[in-house]
Structures are given as structure tokens and as C-alpha cells.
Design a protein around this nucleic acid. Structure first.
Ligand code: MN
Ligand code: MN
Ligand code: MN
Ligand code: MN
Lengths: 227, 227
DNA sequence: TACATAAATTAGGCATGCCTAACAAATCAA
DNA sequence: TTGATTTGTTAGGCATGCCTAATTTATGTA
């Protein structure tokens, strides 16, 4: 059995590196995830990332060869998944019990996810009724680190005439989430694609008897299921 | 109005210094609180405390003259009180909603108190029904930093024959709290002093038809009100 | 293949906050 | 009042994790 104590020995920063790398690897598929990309994502310099990754390799959290593509070890992945579980449970708590709006939860959950207490997370999960999704529609891994991999269809992948339901959002920035709300959209909203503009990829969608035009960037950040 | 932004700029360590100093000053009355004492209380070296206090003086959180007694500024005091408010609200939450025992809450609250979110604390307070006391019987300051100063009578100050009610405990260590529980005592327990041993200050007390002997150290850590 | 560009690492520095050892100031006692 | 002891500060170092600048390695294109 791998050393379990390592889970509680990591610093907040090491944890954030693991989580960031996990997210990038998830989105990248088979594509390479590199130092610059991770640095950009975390808002720090590539040099800092190089240094930190060096240390994390000796701790067997990250795997990569010099100048090669980055990867997480099994241990690193497991920790990242538990962090994501904690993050999403806290977001759910803030949303359902603390009257936070969905654009407010992320920032505070980014702090709360680093609280060290196995019991607290188990109790929080129980208290919330073992929620399956966070306020952004993202799947919450269970205590064993298992989670459902859903087909990731974005609004951008549909064609004119298609009908769908909004199941989750990719971006968790305040600006994006507030924009979604302001448009009148939310999880479960039913949307129909009206027209796709070839020139810039913008899309005209309709829902609730409204018809609006949204950018390519917008439709890339909305996950849906066809209906 | 003093710069309010400073509240969110402090590191976890600076916050813990303020809280520690506040507690020592509260207990010290007019007595001097010194560098060694603060170092001992925080479990770090006096040299480290000297260095940190130097920095905190420039931030106008701590006041003292070279080689003189330590004190908090108004700003430092206000921040310390808000930290104590957060700490006690979180302890209450863990106790009332997360099934934590009273000896388990402190360690996790020590982390949670550093979460930066004014809204979260306001909502948590509302959610808990604006509690007045934490699981150890300590008074919870309100959002304005006001709190009731109760007469601090310990079991040690009573005389043989006196009857009292347990209102709070001073020590928040796991060892002490578990010991109290194991004895069958809790907040609101009614206790009578049977006998005080002149030799070592140990006290024979009775409650719930039991009669036991406890040490001087024990009775010094139990706050009561006479009945 | 060779050169230009992009990506990653190393070198050197800085802030935070801890340490031990050495030193300075204050206090207590004879 | 002076010497011993206690208390507090400074000096020098270390770990973490960030930075910019310089360098090295990889990659893509002519
Ligand atoms: Mn989030
Ligand atoms: Mn985080
Ligand atoms: Mn406590
Ligand atoms: Mn703390």
C-alpha cells in the first residue's frame, strides 16, 4: 500500500500544482502538457514550474523526463482527485447552505479544499446527502476517488436545429458565470441551436422564447446533452 | 476609518501571532507579556518571535518598545477578535452539524479560521442561529467585535461545600477535554466541592451521585458559576 | 541538413518564517 | 552596587516558492 501519510504532508502549493496538472491532462487527452502550459494556467513563470516539478518528482507525485511531457504518478493522480472532490463538496455546501451564487463559490472553495480533515469531508458529504454534481454541474468523485466520466459535448459541437440541455460549464470564472446567469441560462436549461455563423463560429441559440447570439468562446465552455 | 484591506492581507502566521498575543494579554491582566512567553505559547523560538514582531510593528498590528512589554494595537486587537469569532463559529459548526466531539473541533477550526470570506462567516453565523457560545462554553464575539466579558471563576476558587455549574473550559487540548468527558462532566454539569486538599490543591468534587478527586491543574482549567 | 524559434532548465535573487548561536539589556540578589 | 541570571535581539542559515535573465534542448522550416 502506498504511503498514505503523504496525503497530509503536502503544502497548499503542491496541492494546487497537482490539481492544475490533473485538469490540464484531462483536457489534453493524448496531447502533450508542458511546463509553459502549466505555468500559464497557474499564472506563474515557467521557471517556477520547473523548480517545483523537480521537487515533486522526487516525492513521486509527478513523472516526466527532462524536456519531456508532464504526467502525474498514480499517487499524484489520487491526491488530485481527492482535492477535486473536496473542492466540489465545498462548492456545493456554499451554494446549498451558505446562500452563495454559483459565481461566488469557486474562490472560497479554492481555499477550503486545502483544509486537512478526513472526517470533515466524510461528514460534509453525508450532510449534503452525497451529492453527485457541484453547482457548475461537474461530477463529484466519491471517497474512493471513483467518478463518472461523462461524454463532453459542448454547445459548439452541435448543428443548427439540434436541441439540448445544459449539463455543466467548463469555465469557472466569475465573468463567465455571471454572463451565463445574466443571459437567463442555468443548469438544465433547454436550448436549441438556430444558426451557426461560419465566419466567426458564433451561434444563435434559443431558449425560454428568447433568441440570442453567443460567441465561439462561449459555446466552447458550455457542456450539454442532446435531447 | 482604519484601512480595512489589511484584514485580508495578513498571512496565516501573522494571524496566529495576533490571536496568540491576544489570548496571553487577556489572561495576563496588567502583568507583562514578553517575547519568551509568546514563543513558548506558540511552540517556536524567541528569536523567531522577535523577528516576526519586528515586522508586525511596522504594519501597526503590534506595539512595544525594545526590550519592553508586548501589546496589540487597536487594529491588531480587532483582527484578533474577528479570528476568535471565526474560530468559535467553525467549532460550533463542526460540533452541531459535522458530528465532531468537543475534543476534535479545535484542530480543524485552527485551519478554518484562516479562510478569507466575509460573506461565508456572516452566512455561517446566520445558519447556526447566531450562537452565543462555542462547544467549550467560550463566548463568541459578534460581527462588530463586541463580546461579553464574563467573570472568570474557576473551580479552584471555590470552597468546600460550594455548589456550581460548569460554564466553560480554559484548556482546549484533546487530552484535557477527553479527560473531562471520561469523568462524566460536560457544560452545565452541576458540581459540589467536597474537600480541598491543602497539600497539593487537589479537590474532591461530587456530581451525578459520583465523588472523585481531581488535581489542582484540573480545577484551574474549569470555569464555573456558583449556584 | 542547418538555422531560427519555441520550450524547458539553470543561475542567481528575494520574501516569508523558521532555526541555533552569540550578544546585549534588564532584572534580581547578595 | 555589582555580579549572576533571565529575557530579548541580532547574526547567519535553511526551506519554500516566487521572480528575471541566461542558457540549453527540442522542434519546425527552408
Ligand atoms: Mn470550482
Ligand atoms: Mn486551492
Ligand atoms: Mn478552539
Ligand atoms: Mn490558526
Amino acid at each position: 500500500m502506498p504511503n498514505k501519510s503523504i496525503h497530509t504532508k503536502l503544502t497548499k502549493n503542491e496541492e494546487d500544482y497537482l490539481k492544475a496538472l490533473f485538469h490540464l491532462l484531462s483536457e489534453a487527452g493524448d496531447n502533450k502538457v508542458g511546463t509553459n502550459q502549466l505555468a500559464e494556467y497557474m499564472g506563474i513563470s515557467p521557471a517556477s514550474v520547473s523548480g517545483m516539478l523537480k521537487k515533486m518528482k522526487t516525492k513521486d507525485l509527478v513523472a516526466s523526463e527532462r524536456y519531456g511531457k508532464l504526467d502525474l504518478t498514480e499517487e499524484g493522480t489520487a491526491i488530485a482527485v481527492q482535492l477535486i472532490r473536496k473542492h466540489r463538496l465545498w462548492e456545493t455546501f456554499l451554494y446549498t447552505h451558505m446562500n452563495f451564487t454559483w459565481d461566488e463559490v469557486h474562490e472560497v472553495a479554492e481555499q477550503l479544499e486545502h483544509i486537512k480533515s478526513t472526517k470533515l469531508i466524510a461528514e460534509l458529504d453525508k450532510f449534503l446527502g452525497h451529492p453527485k454534481r457541484d453547482p457548475h454541474g461537474a461530477v463529484i468523485p466519491n471517497a474512493e476517488g471513483e467518478y463518472q466520466l461523462l461524454p463532453k459535448i459542448t454547445l459548439a459541437q452541435l448543428e443548427a436545429g439540434d436541441r439540448c440541455r445544459l449539463v455543466s460549464v467548463k469555465d469557472s470564472s466569475v465573468a463567465f458565470l455571471q454572463y451565463v446567469s445574466r443571459l437567463g441560462l442555468a443548469l438544465s436549461s433547454e436550448i436549441q441551436i438556430r444558426e451557426i455563423e461560419a465566419f466567426d463560429g458564433s451561434v444563435t441559440i434559443s431558449f425560454d422564447n428568447k433568441e440570442i447570439n453567443v460567441s465561439k468562446k462561449f459555446v466552447d465552455n458550455v457542456f450539454v446533452e442532446k435531447i
